[in-house]
């Protein structure tokens, strides 16, 4: 009867007693790991490994993520650096090309033994009515209307409107342009007139003259406007069947007018650019 009424308390008491005995024994004797403890540790090892594996996986993934975030930032920085360097490279390439062009122009100026003023093309007008370019030098640099303008490829035109600091150049291909020319091979003279997109047309050469496709056309120097011997272009077509006394000769200019960026303006013989400029001012 006693045991039945107090079995819960008795059960708890017995368990407590057993645990206290175990604790006391272990405190007193400090025994090495028993079989039960060994079994627990043995069973816990794979569980510990599993958790460690999981945590390491998560940790690595997190580190990789952080690394990727860093990479993204680095990538962005590198891309912007590449952009900046590409822009710089472009600038250098442009500078190099400009230097090449100016070198050619300088060589041409020396070759011609005429005083000249170098100018930069600041605008173009290739409309139907007029074919002109706009340069950044004007009367303050000693320029005057009528001065011939050349590029490394040869003559490109002459000044028409000159302001203090800029000028308009009427190109060879302008319909109003007339230049005294000669055929280099046969020394036959004529007048090259602008023909727009077709280049130039050389007029007033008799049908009996020897002109062939591929002949080089130069300035003749007869009008005192252009020095003698400046290259103009090549004969591209000769029509002998045309009605009239003269040949119909088409000339393709050496200069590519759409790509000209720097030019030389030739001054009259004996005039230096600085003196001309001072005089004008």
């Amino acid at each position: 009867m006693f045991f039945k009424n107090y079995r819960t308390v008795l059960f708890i008491g017995v368990v407590f007693l057993a645990v206290l005995l175990l604790l006391s024994y272990n405190i007193k004797y400090d025994s090495a790991a028993g079989l039960a403890k060994k079994a627990v540790l043995e069973a816990a090892t794979p569980v510990q490994k599993f958790f460690t594996f999981c945590i390491n996986g998560v940790e690595n993934a997190w580190k990789r993520y952080i690394h990727l975030v860093g990479l993204e930032e680095e990538n962005r920085q590198l891309k912007s650096k590449i952009d900046a360097l590409q822009a710089e490279l472009l600038l250098y390439k442009e500078g190099n090309k400009e230097a090449q062009r100016l070198k050619g122009l300088l060589a041409l100026g020396k070759e011609l033994s005429y005083p000249s003023v170098a100018a930069r093309v600041i605008g173009r007008q290739q409309a139907a009515l007029s074919k002109t370019i706009w340069i950044d030098k004007g009367s303050s640099d000693g320029l005057k209307p009528g001065f011939p303008v050349i590029a490394p490829a040869g003559l490109i035109g002459r000044l028409t409107d000159v302001t203090w600091h800029s000028s308009k150049v009427m190109l060879l291909i302008d319909e109003n342009s007339n230049v005294d020319v000669l055929i280099q091979r046969t020394r036959v003279q004529g007048i090259a007139r602008g023909a727009g997109s077709r280049g130039c047309v050389v007029k007033y050469i008799s049908k009996i003259q020897d002109v062939k496709e591929g002949d080089t056309v130069l300035t003749s120097g007869m009008s005192n406007l252009f020095p003698k011997g400046l290259q103009i272009g090549k004969v591209s077509y000769v029509d002998r069947m045309d009605v009239g006394l003269f040949l119909h000769i088409q000339v393709v200019p050496f200069a590519d007018f759409a790509k000209i960026e720097e030019v030389l303006v030739l001054l009259p013989d004996g005039q230096t650019p600085s003196a001309a400029g001072k005089k004008e001012r």
Binding site: T8, F11, I12, V15, F16, V19, L20, L22, L23, S24, Y25, N26, I27, D30, A33, G34, A36, K37, V40, L41, A44
Partner: peptide
């Protein structure tokens, strides 16, 4: 209930004792 719970507490305490390296029976108690 008492039996289930006490078994759980005993085993849990013993496992903690074994893994934590303290004197056996301390966490069990």
């Amino acid at each position: 209930d008492l039996i289930k719970g006490m078994s759980l507490a005993l085993v849990m305490g013993f496992v903690l004792d074994s893994i934590s390296g303290t004197v056996e029976g301390l966490f069990t108690l």
